[in-house]
Each structure stands twice: as C-alpha cells, then as structure tokens.
Design a protein around this nucleic acid. Structure first.
Lengths: 159, 159
DNA sequence: GCTAATGTACTCGGATATCGAATGTCCGAGTCCTTCTGG
DNA sequence: CCAGAAGGACTCGGACATTCGATATCCGAGTACATTAGC
C-alpha cells in the first residue's frame, strides 16, 4: 500500500483539530511530520479531487476539511489515495483454460475471485466504520489537550 | 496486489484435483491457463519455500501439494507470494512531529496504525477461514465432474 | 482622507525526472530413466 | 539373459533484463493583500 495513505490519514486528523474557518497551507501540514512539501501537496490534491478537502489559493490559502470529521471515513481517504479498484483484480485466467467458456463473466463467477472479494469487503467494511472523528477522539481521550495544541500549532506563525 | 497471487490460487486449486501420487510439471500447470512457464515457476518456488508445495526434479518430477487441500488456507498462499508484512506499514511519522516523543513505539500505539491494523486483521481472518478445499468443493458443487476432468488433464500426455 | 489601480508575495495545480519493485526471461544444477555393453 | 554403467533428457532453482507505478521535484497559474498614486 502506498505510503501516502499514512500521510493523508494523519494530515486529515490534524486538520480535524484546526479551526474550520482557517485554511492550512501544505507547507505547514508537511512541516508537522517533516514530510516533503511538494509530494504531500500531490496527495492533498487527490483528497481535494475526491471531495474530502477544499483548497484555496493565494495568501491565507491552503486546505481544510470539506465536511465534518465524523462524515469522513478512513475508507474515503484510502480510496482517494489508492484508487477505487480493489487490490485483487481478477484477470479471468480461467477463460484461457481448456475447460473455459467464452461467454462467462469470470470476474463475477470464479470461486477464487469471489473468495478474495469477500475478504476485501470485510476490510472495506472495517475501514468504512471508522471516521477521522473517531481517530481524533481516541487521541484526545488518551492525551487530553492534544487537539487544542495541534490546532494552535497549525495556525500559528501566520501573517 | 501482485498478479502472481491469482496464478498461485488457481494453480493450487488445480493441484488439489490432481492425483497426490503424481507430480505435475510447471510447464503443464502453466499451459492450463496459458501463463508464461518461467514466471509461474518463480511463484511455485515461493510456494515450495513456504511449505505449501513440494518439488521434485528430473523426469516425472514437478510440483504437488505438501498437505491436504483442507489444510491450506487462502491466507497461506497470499502470504507465500506477497510476503508476511502487512500492506499498511506504519512509518511512525508521529515521531517527527513537534509533539512527538522519542521513546514511544508508535507502530503499536498510534491510533491510525491501530485502525488500519484492525481492518487488515479482518481481511486476514476472512482469508484464513477459506481453504483450497473449499474452493475446489464450490467448483465441484457448481459444475460436477470438474475435479475429475481437471485432474485427468493435468496428468495426461505424460511419458 | 478616500478610492482605485497596480504590484507583490503567497498558494495551489499539473507537468516533469528518478527510483524500486513487480514482471518476464534465460541458463546452469540435479535427478531419473533409458540404453548399451560386458559378463 | 542379467547387471551395471554411461549417456541423455527432463525438471527445478536461481541469476539476469525489462517495464510500470510509486516517489520526489520543479515551475507556471491564480488570488488576496498591501502599497501607492490620483482625485
């Protein structure tokens, strides 16, 4: 799995702590984890295209969450970065077998494909059940005051 | 996910239909799905290293299942090909943050890492619950006689 | 003093290199069968 | 006719190219603010 997924999840969690009225530049978001700014920017663009973030150009511009943290599931973020197609993609190799038929959609009927799809659905269901708000709540519960501190750090040192 | 996983799963399912006393060469296994022989051989070697298959050199040599199909889970096959490390690997980027501590194992405590790990465990649990025998049984149930036919095809045209 | 236009700095956005891993291919090591020769 | 040895063919096993996507970087487009000139 792409490393950008981890960056995106942590960055979204950070943005959940920031003031919704203030946009945070990619430069600042990258500095939070000592990440390369330009590449993180690329991931943020993907999140923006997916409708998870909104972007603003110019001075006092940057990124902010497009909707409430509780309405952003981990699956949303993963799909935005990794793409919608499932990890195991059936190539229908059964069709090339001597006992394979032509007019059959092996992607749907092949037993192997079905088993893998079932596993992947379990994975997606687990991810869809967790939101950015849940992550933030867990952290806040373990280390009270973190959200306040992070939110302040993200918007400090602003012209 | 690597395409070799699909090849490995289908090939194991085929071997489950073959006579356990007869080894099937990689060439024949590849011909079953019109796959490149040399590359499939590479995957079969990985399965042999993982203890899923046993290999025999020389004439009348080839591969066969190392244990009963019911004792080979889909997870075993996937791990043999893809490797044991999980798809989402926490890089502990929290350590680089201004509020990060040095002596903390973020791979275990980070909320993001935990959430992703939980999803991946669900995926693995689903894969571990299905065996090659289950796949073979499903196919045989839908298309009776397939196992017999496949098994015969694999060992026919043998000196 | 107020307004409007202009310049400037800051930010996103996409186009452009670089690197590693998956993909694909090849030849050598080992083994078993067959065959031939000698008794 | 039988036994043993040598040859050959078949198969796995790992070493060697190639292609594709993830990684990393840079420069241009657009915007808001500050400044300045004019009324």
């Amino acid at each position: 799995m792409s490393e950008g997924v981890e960056w995106a999840l942590h960055t979204c969690a950070n943005l959940a702590c920031a003031d919704p009225g203030e946009a945070v530049p990619a430069k600042r978001l990258a500095a939070a984890f000592a990440l390369p700014t330009a590449y993180l920017n690329k991931q943020l663009q993907a999140l923006a295209r997916a409708g998870i973030l909104t972007s603003t150009s110019g001075p006092r511009g940057g990124f902010r969450l497009a909707r409430a943290p509780g309405a952003i599931s981990l699956l949303d973020v993963v799909v935005a970065i990794e793409g919608a197609e499932e990890a195991f993609r059936c190539a229908s190799i059964l069709r090339a077998s001597p006992w394979g038929r032509e007019g059959v959609d092996y992607r749907a009927t092949c037993a192997v494909s079905q088993a893998m799809r079932r596993a992947e659905l379990a994975w997606r269901r687990e991810l869809a059940g967790q939101t950015i708000a849940d992550i933030a709540a867990t952290v806040e519960n373990r280390h009270p005051g973190t959200a306040e501190r992070v939110g302040g750090w993200l918007t400090e040192a602003r012209g």
